[in-house]
Design a protein around this nucleic acid. Structure first.
Lengths: 180, 180
DNA sequence: CATTACGTACAGAAAAAACTGTACGTACAA
DNA sequence: TTGTACGTACAGTTTTTTCTGTACGTAATG
């Protein structure tokens, strides 16, 4: 094995490690491979570059780069005189984490909150109905209690997301461990 | 639609909302449905109960309850005189979030860190070889820089996980919003 | 001891997700 | 205007995941 192959092997291990864990970002392994490969390239790549490098179809590159882009792991960049779309990985992994966390959980909180609001309204309406037995009323009250609890939880989650988004999290857990 | 159906509809909305978002916990929608259903039941359930309630096979219940258990969303409980396994959802959603976060990311950090250590050692070894061109050496140095960066990032992530695990996160983002 | 109830391993079926090639719309170039 | 290069929508295929039914090991019961 020559030096170049050894280098490739070293890179491949890291890339595969990323590929195996990218599901934490809601992305398939191939997107992780794409990200890893781009991470070791020091310049923006076109879809054709990626296609050639990974031996996958351009269509796949197109769809997965969109996923990577929506999860904010890559940026589209412009270069004078280049007609093709160019992409590069973001270089701030802390910010990548924050963005992923924010995007993914904000959406979840939003969907859940909407569902809770609707169901809560229905239950309160139902409570007023006059054909309600005491037994059923107790269940309704119990469900309302549960919804109040999870609404409170989602409020906490929302504030947690804020703490990431506005970087307050770095006050609690500093980026750099300054050694003496 | 009678009152009971209305109640079911209200519950179903919440349960479906959970099912659609449980992928954030690395679980399939059906596990979310299972969790949601159990959330509204006020007593522990057997696999047969779940099977009947969700209209799915007992085998499926068994496998998905294991996933829910590993992700620490449910607990197995014991009841005198009951031979069947009983499960109930954890009632502390804040702790559920913390556990999921901890379990999922700790594993990722561990795997990544191991990969980085290996590749780093290889690269340092490779640097010493005498058949290395200046060009290749520059690439190796560059890769080492990159690995140093992500190692630092994973160290931060590890400390972030600590902050969740030991509940310091609740100092930054308090559980209860105490209003005046 | 035999019997019964229970959970799950395993293999196959069904469903979902990822990937590919073709075809088309758009935009720049000549 | 015509031609060319590009990205992606879409339909079909492959791969992966999820779900089911059968069969078996284990433990409690009589």
């Amino acid at each position: 094995m020559d030096a170049y192959e050894k280098l490739e092997k070293s890179r491949k291990r890291i890339t595969e490690s990323i590929a195996q864990n990218i599901h934490l970002y809601g992305l398939p392994p191939s997107a992780g491979r794409q990200f890893g490969m781009m991470f070791f390239e020091d310049h923006p790549l076109t879809l054709d570059d990626m296609s050639a490098e990974l031996g996958m179809s351009k269509t796949s590159m197109s769809t997965s780069i969109r996923s990577l882009s929506e999860a904010k792991l890559v940026d589209r960049v412009w270069e004078r005189g280049v007609r093709k779309d160019l992409y590069e990985v973001k270089d701030d992994w802390y910010q990548i984490f924050v963005d992923m966390f924010t995007v993914k959980w904000r959406r979840a909180v939003s969907l859940h909150t909407a569902a809770i609001r609707k169901s809560m309204a229905e239950l309160k309406e139902l409570k007023k109905a006059d054909d309600i037995t005491d037994e059923l009323l107790a269940i309704i009250e119990s469900d309302i209690e549960k919804l109040l609890y999870i609404r409170e939880y989602y409020d906490w989650l929302d504030r947690l997301i804020d703490a990431f988004e506005d970087h307050k999290i770095f006050d609690l857990v500093p980026r750099l461990e300054e050694d003496a």
